[in-house]
Write a protein that binds this DNA or RNA. Structure first.
Ligand SMILES: [Zn+2]
Ligand SMILES: [Zn+2]
Ligand SMILES: [Zn+2]
Ligand SMILES: [Zn+2]
Ligand SMILES: [Zn+2]
Ligand SMILES: [Zn+2]
Length: 812
DNA sequence: GAGTTTGAAACT
DNA sequence: CAGTTTCAAACTC
């Protein structure tokens, strides 16, 4: 299963993209997959962002709830839906995850086939098509076994099997493609799913060698287990398209080859080069891309997905609110709205799309007006209008989990509401998907465009759904036909929720977003598809509540949209999404830039200033006009200005690399002045640094790392020693309390027990070590130790005093 | 905390 | 594109 087309991935913000946890699907080799081959390493999945936890847990259920939730996406090839939906129209899918593990999806369009993934054990999932028809759980997932069974939605048959078969993996054949689902890291058996595939695209196994292997039809999805999943790159016809090659480039592998050309001055020899240019022919490990391109399954018509949680349902969107879109690097939650636009002319036509997102109490509304030019802003719509579309997405705010949602927007003005109980809502993403082929051949309004199945990831607790968009290649190669089936994978992770829905190809719909916060990315689907993503930072959302209206202007020219992105989006510093999200952003201290230049980290990250120390700050909703203008200016200057500079991949992974490289002169790239070092990555051949010591073999670097580690250990030890001392003192007090009460005279001696003595000595020794490591002169070392001794004594005395007081109070 | 250093961003 | 200036953070003391 493809998780996401590479391009798409690249376009998406890291967090959104994270697929790592859930889905890796080695396609070509069944064996490896079945064996549950672990993603040997997160080789660099661009997408990965999730916290390891999430990935491990696989389970949808949030920690809080012991029960596991599974969410399934169904792809059903519906023969006919009671409700006829024009291709252009969106399909509403409602998923309601209640506390109960069951999710229901209602694809409005019957025709689409989707594959769904579910991660954790799920009790049951039901899918309803077109509202009236219900397909009972196409697949079942049993937590215990970690197995997932997926059935076609369309086929009612599956239901029984699915239910009954929680334990054993099932294989479903639809059209000859198989999906393997495996839980990684868990003993669960792999599940084999067969997805209908329209085209013959061989899947490529993650391993480079396999990439070209013919065995295309197997797709493996691993759920859970390790956080890092390896991306699979699919190739059509065994060939790697140029796009892929480029993407591959972006992923890059760790070491750089000595780049002789790049920097003659440097000690090229010493530097390790992260893999750089990959010529298409060059052996680029297919694996790299991290995304599965291969899937050829037809795309599903536009759909809307509603996720509602019972809890939150009560909360409704408030009209009149705006949606702010700005990419956040570390949004805790992301919502993505995809708007499908017709393949052919979409470029200039726009359709008004109102979107309301209510989070908890927040509502975001995005409106698009049909305007001749994409750039136009549609402001006219009243909030009331927006409300009409009833679709709401409620994501259960599972305790603190992160949340990402991508919602496809229907062609018609639809209002989608997203309710997030959890409260944190960071991102809103607008996606426009077009089916049009890159070549310019428009597919008919019928949404003939070929879209490959895309995985949907849904995490409850946190819901995570990602719907792949047709890989560019497929688009090019495939003649525009109406495709019925799309494979979707849904994975759920506890912590994060992410919904990415395939944009429905809506004829002539092109979203216009006039006001985009910095960092907002609107990207047309690669390969000619139009997929726009708008990412809104949480702060932005927050501020939106206050502000009356935000218009999003479509950035027709948005560079990001150009299908090729070299850089995977990662959270800054390669931190997992969870990490990044959880960590509060550092406040800026800008004074002269008004926080409207890239000097300001807040602005550069596409965030509003919040709790900053800046002066004359314009990076807020109160100065929206100026801000938008500044954003535009930055974008004009550098279309990639708001894209992450550091490629994705986990720390230490080879694929992480600075997009532009540093330019250090005096820091040796071993201070935080250096962006590479700051991001904890090695300098690469693209760096233009002088006197660089930030390379793998660098002794200075090693020393530095060593010192840093030692310091860390020291701190930990010290903390541990103090904790121990305190605990022992308290413990002692507990035991001696009676004694004290009876004969208070011996009090001081009572407290200096062997344990206390040992703990005190540990503290002193630790202090001595510290002095030694910092090369303190003896006098200073002695002073430090004495000081520590004083502290120890103070603790003992205070504890004793407290104990005495306690005893007194108790006795009295 | 004040002052210095640094390299990216902005500007020319 | 290169050279210079501006800027805010990183660093030093
Ligand atoms: Zn600022
Ligand atoms: Zn700020
Ligand atoms: Zn500010
Ligand atoms: Zn550097
Ligand atoms: Zn560097
Ligand atoms: Zn360097």
């Amino acid at each position: 299963m493809d998780v996401v087309s590479p391009e798409l991935n690249s376009l998406l913000p890291d967090e959104i993209m994270d697929t790592e946890a859930i889905e890796d699907i080695p396609q070509s080799q069944p064996e490896s997959t079945t064996s549950q081959s672990e993603p040997s390493d997160d080789t660099s999945v661009p997408m990965e962002t999730d916290t390891p936890m999430a990935s491990e847990n696989l389970g949808l259920c949030s920690d809080a709830t012991s029960t596991e939730h599974t969410q399934a996406l169904t792809t059903s090839t519906a023969t006919d839906s009671p409700l006829s939906i024009s291709p252009g129209s969106r399909l509403p899918i409602s998923v309601s995850s209640t506390s109960s593990p069951i999710l229901t999806l209602k694809p409005a369009l019957a025709t689409s086939t989707a594959t769904t993934k579910t991660t954790d054990s799920v009790t049951g999932t039901s899918v309803t098509t077109s509202g009236l028809q219900k397909l009972t759980a196409p697949f079942t997932i049993s937590a215990a076994n970690h197995q997932i069974i997926l059935n076609k939605v369309a086929s009612s048959q599956a239901t029984e099997a699915a239910k009954s078969a929680g334990t054993t993996p099932q294989v479903i054949k639809q059209e000859g493609q198989k999906l393997l689902l495996t839980t990684i890291g868990k003993s669960g058996q792999p599940i084999v799913l067969q997805l209908p595939h329209t085209g013959n695209k061989p899947g490529i196994s993650q391993t480079a060698g396999d990439a070209k292997s013919p065995a295309p039809q197997f797709k493996v999805v691993t759920i859970g287990g390790r956080p890092e999943l390896k991306p699979v790159v699919g190739s059509v016809g065994n060939q790697v398209t140029t796009l892929q090659a480029q993407q591959l480039k972006t992923v890059q592998i760790a070491k750089k080859t000595p780049a002789s050309s790049a920097a003659p001055i440097k000690f090229i020899i010493t530097k390790t080069v992260n893999s750089k240019s990959l010529s298409p022919q060059t052996s680029v490990p297919p694996v790299i891309a991290g995304r599965v391109l291969t899937q050829t399954s037809p795309v599903i018509p536009p759909r809307t997905i509603n996720l509602s949680e019972p809890h939150n349902t009560s909360i409704q969107s408030l009209p009149g609110k705006k949606i702010a879109i700005s990419p956040l690097k570390t949004p805790s939650k992301v919502t993505v709205v995809s708007v499908a636009s017709p393949t052919s002319n979409a470029a200039q036509k726009s359709v008004a799309l109102p979107v309301n997102v209510a989070l908890g109490q927040q509502i975001l509304t995005v409106q698009q007006s049909t305007s001749a030019s994409p750039v136009k802003v549609a402001t006219s719509q009243s909030a009331a209008q927006n409300i009409k579309p009833v679709q709401s997405v409620a994501v259960g705010g599972v305790g603190g989990s992160q949340f990402k949602t991508i919602i496809p927007l229907a062609t018609q003005p639809n209002v989608q509401q997203i309710q997030v109980p959890g409260s944190r809502f960071h991102y809103v993403r607008l996606v426009t998907a077009t089916t049009a082929s890159s070549t310019g051949q428009p597919s008919g309004p019928s949404t003939s465009s070929i879209q490959t199945a895309k995985p949907m990831v849904v995490s409850t607790g946190a819901v995570r759904m990602s719907v792949p968009i047709v890989p560019p290649q497929t688009m090019k190669q495939v003649a525009p036909k109406p495709l019925t089936s799309a494979a979707q994978v849904v994975t759920t992770t506890q912590t994060q929720q992410r919904l990415i829905m395939p944009a429905t190809p809506l004829p002539q719909i092109q979203p216009n977003f006039t006001n985009l916060p910095p960092g907002t990315v609107l990207a047309p689907a690669p390969g000619g598809g139009n997929v726009g993503y708008a990412v809104v930072p949480a702060q932005y959302v927050t501020q939106l509540q206050q502000s009356p209206f935000v218009t999003l202007a479509s950035s027709s020219g948005f560079p990001a949209s150009a299908g090729i992105q070299t850089q995977a989006r990662l959270p800054l510093n390669g931190l997992s999404a969870a990490e990044t999200t959880s960590r509060p952003r550092k406040p800026c201290n800008c004074t002269k830039s008004q926080c409207l230049k890239l000097y300001c980290d807040c602005f550069a990250n596409g965030e509003f200033c919040n709790n900053c120390n800046c002066n004359n700050c314009f990076n807020n909703l109160e100065h929206e006009t100026e801000r938008l203008k500044a954003i535009k200016t930055c974008l004009d200057r550098n279309p990639e200005a708001f894209k992450p500079k550091i490629g994705k991949g986990k720390e230490g992974e080879s694929d992480r690399r600075h997009s532009k490289g540093c330019n250090c002169k005096r820091s040796g790239c071993l201070k935080n002045y250096c962006e590479c070092y700051e991001a904890k990555i090695m300098c690469s051949s693209i760096c233009k640094c002088i006197g660089c010591k930030n390379f793998e073999e660098s002794p200075e670097r090693k020393t530095l790392m060593h010192l840093a580690d030692a310091a860390e250990v020291r701190v930990q030890q010290q903390t541990a020693a103090k904790t121990k001392l305190s605990s022992q003192i308290s413990d002692l007090l507990m035991r001696t309390a009676p004694v004290i009460s009876s004969g208070g005279g011996r009090l001081p001696y009572t407290f200096v027990t062997k344990e206390v003595l040992e703990a005190t000595c540990e503290c002193l020794l630790e202090q001595a070590k510290k002095a030694e490591q910092t090369h303190q002169p003896q006098a200073e070392a002695e002073r430090m130790i004495l000081e520590e001794f004083g502290h120890c004594l103070m603790r003992i005395i205070s504890s004793a005093g407290k104990a005495k007081a306690d005893c007194a109070s108790i006795n009295c």
